[in-house]
Simulated scan of single mutants.
Amino acid sequence: MQSNEGDSVSAALSRRIDEAITAAGGWLGFDRFMAMALYEPGLGYYSRESRKFGALPESGSDFVTAPELSPLFGRALARQVAQALAAAGSGEVWEFGAGSGALAAQLLESLGERVTRYTIVDLSGSLRARQRERLAAFGDKLRWVDALPERMAGVIVGNEVLDAMPVQLLHFDSAQWLERGVALEGGRFVWSDRPTELRPPVDAAFAPGSVTEIHAQARAFVATLAERLERGAAFFIDYGFPEAEYWHPQRRGGTLMCHRAHRSDEDPLADVGEKDITAHVDFTGIALAAQDAGLDVVGYTTQARFLMNCGILDLLRGADVRTTANTQKLLTEHEMGELFKVIGLAKGIELDPIGFAHGDRTHTL
């Protein structure tokens, strides 16, 4: 029954995208396609009723995030959040894209009375319902909004948020850059390129056939945060690279990836709405957008180094075997420790963040 419902939702989403392509003259930029595939109300991957987060595919989940792997992730991050809250003289925490609510629960439990209000900004109605159920014990401290307020103060957190923001695609055909979009052919979605003035932000020796992403929406998001954050800090954790690694000539295929049933594939045009679509984060672009908009970049490092700076090894003492094994996945290089990075931003406060005390890589951005 669930499979039939999924097929029905996917077919309805495909028809909606068909209509959008037709209305746009037969070509839709990939950023618009990705936005519809992920967030179209009631139909997109994050808007539909299905389980996304879990440790194993047997649970019906598609991928696991750090808070689901180990409760020590949130407990360690809470130490950094507590320091930033004190510097801001605030008790407000804002989380973007709260997923299953696991991180919110860990932060709220760890921070206790230091948090007077915890605001979740999430576009997905289905995920918000699950978050409310999971976080019911925290009562009036919680609120949900679907848009940024005009003014904010406090600490902002986002775990695996930037990677899910729609991206534009560029294709280099050896003579010129083309924007890669989506068209219809024989009732199927197909790639279609057209000339564009868009360019990667680096002047590198791109090989013919190279495909890469432009992160305009993520940069705009950070700029908007900067405009509305009056006093406080923001910490974003995600997989990605600094500019020199992101646009390395050997990365010819870009970073676009899909996730379903704990497996990955590189075809976002298939099974639309039934799998996640992501792109690695260009952390140099995020840092530049933040600085241009008035934020200070107060740190950038690997997830492993950040968590160790925040005392996760102390928290591991006395932990059971399962927690220890799962926490190691957050730290080891071949798992999440090296690929995932943390960037810290601040405005209007004096902050020397503990999470970047050792191993800061801001100089690589």
Rank of each mutant, 00 (worst) to 15 (best):
R305Y: 04
E19V: 07
H363W: 14
L43A: 12
A35P: 09
I237L: 12
G99F: 00
Y46F: 15
G54S: 01
F33G: 03
G337I: 09
L269A: 10
A204H: 09
F235K: 06
I312T: 02
L107W: 00
E350L: 06
P268N: 04
Q131I: 02
F33M: 04
Y118L: 08
Q303L: 00
L148T: 02
E40P: 05
Y246L: 01
N326A: 13
Q83V: 08
E213C: 04
L123Y: 05
D140W: 06
Q176R: 13
L43R: 10
C258H: 12
E49L: 11
I312Q: 02
L170Q: 00
S14A: 14
V211C: 08
G26C: 10
A82T: 05
R260H: 15
F96Y: 04
S59C: 03
D62M: 06
E109R: 09
L28P: 05
F138I: 01
V190L: 03
T196R: 03
T196V: 02
S47R: 12
G26W: 06
T22M: 06
A287C: 10
D276L: 09
R219A: 09
L13P: 06
I354T: 11
T301A: 15
T364G: 09
P57V: 02
E338Q: 14
A233C: 05
D18V: 07
R132Y: 02
P200I: 00
R134Y: 04
A279L: 14
L295M: 12
S3N: 14
G232Q: 05
T22I: 13
R151Y: 05
V167K: 00
L56N: 14
A105D: 15
T212C: 12
Y45S: 02
D163I: 05
D7N: 14
G154A: 03
A207Y: 11
V272C: 07
R114S: 08
L127K: 13
R128C: 15
H259A: 15
A84Q: 03
A289V: 06
A136H: 12
A175N: 04
R263T: 12
M152E: 11
H259Y: 15
E197K: 12
N159Q: 00
G29H: 05
R188A: 08
W191K: 00
E160H: 01
F206N: 14
L28S: 09
L127M: 14
A279Q: 10
H248Q: 07
A216S: 13
S47G: 07
N4P: 04
A223L: 12
A147W: 07
G112E: 13
V222A: 08
I349V: 13
D276N: 14
L307M: 11
G44P: 03
E185K: 12
T255D: 01
M308R: 15
F235E: 04
